[in-house]
């Protein structure tokens, strides 16, 4: 077969698999969120549809599809429809550069091909994520403004100022990780953690990144853009049916990408800890599967952590949020870069 076409097929298969993976994880997350919150609040949560309520997400999705799609008469129609799309597309695009397995070489159709377990292996990988993630702001701002409703506009404005503020400490905490690995390529960052994970080498950066990730994904304790008690529902107040579901989907997709990114940057990515793989000495296919499983388990744990925090901590006040971002996290991140630089200068 023509190598160009073969590569095209491989890329298409990867895109489809990753997209299906993200959507299935979103479905599981919607259930997990409600079940875990039920457990934390000492109640049962949804357990009626299917065994243990496992079919609840399907029922929810069906409900979203068959609900009436209302476009209020006072909205700016074109932008109102564009808003949910603009927020969902970047949310799904960011996962493209995250590696979920090692690069392997194999024979396909009589020729040697290298299969990379990530959709696109960019040499600017981490910058790509920051750049695309910063585009998520447009969806909330445009959705909030086009709704022509003061609560929506307030939600949109809060969301964008929050995202812009927390992008800075997030980017700076990544800088120290990049200084350790010497590469922006995420696969290299994972390989760099073969001996010791970055969470041990860069604990401060991990904390800064995690707090920023909570703010970037608009999760509690930083969910001010959709603070129900003050803003009704924030930027998606006027949306119904699948347009509302698009906002939900993108929130969970962002959650998955943030968790996967934390795993990649700080928890060793797809690496299996304690040299278990070398000890077992399995054939390469099994090794791959175990590595992917390791990535999935770590990401699953981070997702659980997000849900855990959401049902544990109360919401911050808006000025507290801004103070934390600009007066605590930003100087800490800068300090961490200096510290990392000193460490590299002394130890190498």
């Amino acid at each position: 077969m023509d190598p160009v076409i073969l590569n095209l097929i491989i890329v298409l298969v990867k895109i489809v698999v990753v997209l299906i993976g993200i959507f299935v994880t979103i479905l599981i997350l919607t259930l997990a969120e409600r079940r875990v919150s039920g457990f934390i609040q000492d109640r049962l949560g949804p357990n009626r549809v299917g065994p243990f309520g496992l079919l609840q997400p399907i029922a929810d999705a069906l409900k979203f599809f068959v609900k009436e799609d209302i476009i209020p008469s006072h909205v700016e129609k074109a932008l109102y429809i564009l808003g949910p799309m603009l927020i969902l597309i970047p949310a799904l695009m960011t996962f493209a550069v995250i590696p979920f397995g090692d690069q392997i070489y194999t024979y396909l159709g009589g020729q040697l091909v290298d299969i990379r377990f990530q959709v696109a292996d960019l040499n600017v990988g981490i910058l790509y994520i920051l750049a695309i993630a910063s585009l998520g702001v447009y969806g909330t701002v445009i959705g909030g403004w086009a709704s022509n409703n003061k609560y929506s506009l307030m939600g949109g404005l809060r969301s964008s100022s929050q995202m812009i503020s927390y992008e800075i400490p997030m980017g700076l905490s990544i800088v120290s990780v990049v200084m350790m690995s010497g590469s922006l390529r995420l696969q290299d960052i994972v390989h760099d953690q073969a001996q010791l994970w970055n969470i041990i080498r860069q604990p401060l950066a991990f904390v800064i990144f995690m707090v920023s990730a909570f703010a970037e994904t608009n999760r509690l304790p930083f969910d001010l853009p959709e603070a129900e008690q003050e803003l009704v529902g924030g930027y998606h107040t006027e949306y119904s049916s699948m347009k509302f579901a698009a906002f939900m989907l993108s929130e969970y997709a962002n959650l998955i990408t943030s968790s996967a990114l934390m795993v990649t940057l700080f928890l060793g990515g797809w690496q299996v800890p304690f040299g278990i793989l070398e000890f077992l000495n399995l054939p390469i296919l099994w090794e791959q599967l175990i590595q992917i499983l390791s990535f999935v388990i770590k990401t699953g744990f981070m997702l659980f952590f997000f849900i855990w925090v959401r049902w544990t901590l109360p919401r911050f006040r808006y000025d507290q949020l801004m103070n934390l971002g600009w007066k605590s996290l930003l100087p800490l991140a800068l300090f961490n870069i200096v510290l990392t630089g000193l460490g590299i200068a002394i130890f190498s």
Binding site: V124, L127, Y128, L130, A131, I132, S134, L135, V137, I164
Partner: peptide
Amino acid sequence: IVHIAVYAGA
């Protein structure tokens, strides 16, 4: 990427 991050993103 910098073009997108700086102009479109900020």
